[in-house]
Design a protein around this nucleic acid. Structure first.
Lengths: 136, 136
DNA sequence: CCTTGACCTTCCAGTTACGGGAACCCCTAT
DNA sequence: ATAGGGGTTCCCGTAACTGGAAGGTCAAGG
């Protein structure tokens, strides 16, 4: 199949597929006219990549996962370690975002949001009031 | 003060401060020797930026916030709208990350993590099993 | 045979918000 | 004079693509 069908079936944009070839994640054959020809095996790799990316794995993590997937003698411990590391990173990001969210939602709630200039959000950001900070 | 002290007092790296000048967020004076000279007003802007960035506002949002802060006749509604938009974006990111987290933590828990090759994580990513997917 | 339109190709630039490092200048103390 | 610890500019690299330009290919229609 050509790139457009591979894109549709893997749920990845053609541009992304070309990029994945460029960085060596896939290596489809070429037709005489230069068009990429995707075999089922290529499509499987693309689908694998699509799902791994959807779970937030980085490209380099995906590269490792692909290698582990291809290695019939892999240890599941290696996969688990990688996934656990990613999971921990996700948890850290969530914690960061939740802290921002808590602070910001309080400020938004406290802001009148009318035509007057007084605003607790700006007040919180302004460096005059060093004392009443609690977070940030 | 010189850049190092401004950096220490605003809790921003010198590189970041130079970058902020380059993109027009600050405009410190220069000494005859070419060194940047930071007045208190510059430091206030840097501190404001430091806090806004810590709350996750993008550079362009910070630019707007600085303008609103400087505008004594602003409407708090404008600030609130911007903050609310950012808050919504944060909530969307948290939701995405939580979805990843839920899927991934289930898979990690299900993986034996021993020397055997069988692995539910890879199984979930592999495109053979189209049916038993529940989340992607 | 020619054209149109939908494909495909490569290549280059831009995105976000900086960080690293080179090459070089300035200032103070010894 | 020299050593060190400032400062400066400039350029490259990051992650993972996306957009767009310039141009080749292919099937269908007139």
């Amino acid at each position: 199949m050509n790139i457009k069908e591979a894109a549709a079936r893997s749920d990845l944009p053609p541009k992304t597929i070309r990029y994945y070839e460029e960085i060596g994640l896939i290596a489809p054959q070429r037709d005489l006219n230069g068009y990429r020809r995707f075999a089922e095996a290529d499509l499987h790799r693309l689908t694998f990549l699509s799902r791994a990316r959807a779970l937030g794995f980085s490209i380099e993590e995906c590269r490792t996962l692909l290698a582990l997937w291809a290695d019939r003698s892999r240890a599941s411990a290696d996969v688990k370690r990688l996934a656990q590391g990613h999971l921990t990173a996700i948890e850290a990001k969530i914690a960061d975002l939740k802290a921002m969210h808590d602070t910001l939602s309080g400020l938004v709630a406290a802001c009148a949001g009318d035509g007057r200039p007084d605003c607790p959000i700006l007040h919180r950001l302004a460096p005059e009031n060093e004392t009443q900070r609690s977070n940030g």
